[in-house]
Design a protein around this nucleic acid. Sequence first.
DNA 1: GATGAATGAGTCTTCATTCAT
DNA 2: GATGAATGAAGACTCATTCAT
Lengths: 211, 211, 211, 211
Amino acid sequence: MSIKKPIGPRAQRKADRPGEILDAAFEEFVQSGYVATRVEDIAARIGVTKGTIYFYFETKEKLFEEMIRHVSVPFSDVKAYLQALEGPYAERLKDFIRIVYQRIATDRNSRELLRFMIAEGSRFPHIVDHHYDEFILPLMEALRELFEAGVAAGEFCGSPLTKIPEIALSPALLMSFWMMLFSDRKIFDVEAFIDAHSEILLNGLLRTAPL
Amino acid sequence: MSIKKPIGPRAQRKADRPGEILDAAFEEFVQSGYVATRVEDIAARIGVTKGTIYFYFETKEKLFEEMIRHVSVPFSDVKAYLQALEGPYAERLKDFIRIVYQRIATDRNSRELLRFMIAEGSRFPHIVDHHYDEFILPLMEALRELFEAGVAAGEFCGSPLTKIPEIALSPALLMSFWMMLFSDRKIFDVEAFIDAHSEILLNGLLRTAPL
Amino acid sequence: MSIKKPIGPRAQRKADRPGEILDAAFEEFVQSGYVATRVEDIAARIGVTKGTIYFYFETKEKLFEEMIRHVSVPFSDVKAYLQALEGPYAERLKDFIRIVYQRIATDRNSRELLRFMIAEGSRFPHIVDHHYDEFILPLMEALRELFEAGVAAGEFCGSPLTKIPEIALSPALLMSFWMMLFSDRKIFDVEAFIDAHSEILLNGLLRTAPL
Amino acid sequence: MSIKKPIGPRAQRKADRPGEILDAAFEEFVQSGYVATRVEDIAARIGVTKGTIYFYFETKEKLFEEMIRHVSVPFSDVKAYLQALEGPYAERLKDFIRIVYQRIATDRNSRELLRFMIAEGSRFPHIVDHHYDEFILPLMEALRELFEAGVAAGEFCGSPLTKIPEIALSPALLMSFWMMLFSDRKIFDVEAFIDAHSEILLNGLLRTAPL
DNA sequence: GATGAATGAGTCTTCATTCAT
DNA sequence: GATGAATGAAGACTCATTCAT
């Protein structure tokens, strides 16, 4: 058991600096994009000056990359959650869909991460590749496994979805895209959308069509 | 008998310049985004100098906006095509899907237009709104009408798709995103994807499930 | 007697081009100063294009210099007028003053010429020197002669004005400055000013003080 | 006991910078005028680079305006001086004249300020108005009061000068103008000029003409 | 750790000038 | 004579980055 000197609010603040900066950077980069964001604005957002940023991060470029890492929540818990699903496959799929909306489509961080990949992808190609390996691919694999297990269990029919699970999740991407572009300007009934998404998927999958 | 001054090579060149510039601007803006693109690079791409660009366009901003207009193909012919569809609604829907992929998902211009809206939307909000009014909304309306007519004709069942046609086209958006992010790095069987998309939609719509 | 082909309005216009340009240049240079005036604006003022200006004038600099020459009315007639003065010297002085106001202080051209010398003098030093030789010096000489003749005739007393005639005309310069700076914003009773000027001068000059 | 951080050479330098820049700006603007002066030249004059100028002043325009303010010495002390005059009004007037020459006509700053108003007045109209309110008007009022007091005391006769005091000071303006245009090229006996100016004024004012 | 004065490369934009038509 | 497309040098202004304090 180690003895730590108590961390006062002052020390606490200092310990948080990098995280604080990363959060501020996220907000500013979201607002203006990589090129148009000034490191001075990032500094101002947390009440420090340019120099402080450079004490913690070598360059604006490195800061951006670390910021991406910082806001990319680990996928492992999502995976664990999905693997722990039980019961009828129709329910498992609904749960799957729900968690995808919660953690990806609806979440602001994920949405802006997606925007960064689209907007700054050519400037930071390895970020895109990393996200493909770490997030997109595992998610698709997990979904594919769910489909295959459902088919093996005789609950799902052999839909093309089994081979191209991306299609099954594309409505979630659409919602992400929609919120990116219109945020609050175009109303969007999120709950109805998610329900419709689930219903449609199951319509095409269940051996007994609900017709 | 009209008197035309013969269009010499110079006059010809002049008439072509704006289009030439707009095309070059599209390529450069695609490559680097609005902020990072240098007017000089746009000029160099067609072998002229900065000054020439400013002879035709007041500012980089106006150039960007006109470029957007230039590459936004009018939606009217798509609409006309869709309205001319005949035969069973299943076939009409397949045709609809096919044209959406041809004209929107697969087309490089449309894809980069979408990227611009995501990447530069906050800088040019009216462009986003304009595209919503001119492209997204009409497309969704056309699809909704097709669904409703199919239901009225007794061919389609009352799926939630009827109310949220966006969901039906979301796979096309996914393909667009995919190509934006990975272009040629991740292979993608486009034909198989489109077929799967159609099949899944019909699975959920036709009164007689193909099961 | 030479036979000239009749000059139609078209030919007339062409013959006037240089003058027309010079007039336009005057207006534009007055408005914005030498550096900030664009030759394109000068051209636009008379409905032609840049190229036309360069057909008649080598450079903007030469155009400016010729414009100065163009608006500098010859001093010879003023001189002749002054030399033709007759009668009592008090009257001659009054006439002198009056002509100075008419031709110099009140005249817009002369005023703007003065402004050019102050504003652009360091860029065009020879213009300043030329105006000194052609206008200022002769005017002062003429005045000095008038004073001396008046003294010789026993009408004027030997005021210091005789040696420094500049002082005698300085109110006219003041009026010029005033109009340059405030034009119509600060009212100024020109007639009263001129009368006061004459009266004060004579007060100090006439052997019999009007006291 | 106050705690001051010792002003090191760096802190000192920082405190001096704005003044240093303003002085350099004055010299450069005097030399080339507003438009033709390059911010970089101002910087070079004090051995820094462009960026430094922009660290202290938002734009070239603001720099110019602040420079004007910086070189415009307050008029209050002149006013105080004038109000403290005592003795015979003839002497007071002579003192008045002398101070006008010292502080206005002869002073390089004032002269160049006048040049700026003539040359850049249309670009910075509020500067002209401000100088009218702050300098010209108060000076004229002070002179008018002096005249009126002199008349009331029975020392001065009711000359038109009383109503148009501008005329009384116009020789000082002439000297300013002369030095602006010819500086050292045309010799000018300043002392003799001032004496003559005083003498002429008094000739026209004193009840007992010196005749 | 933090500051902020200073740098200087980089970018948009302007405009005098040229010249093919 | 006149045009106007094209040039390219020049200048205002920005901002990532450094470093003495």
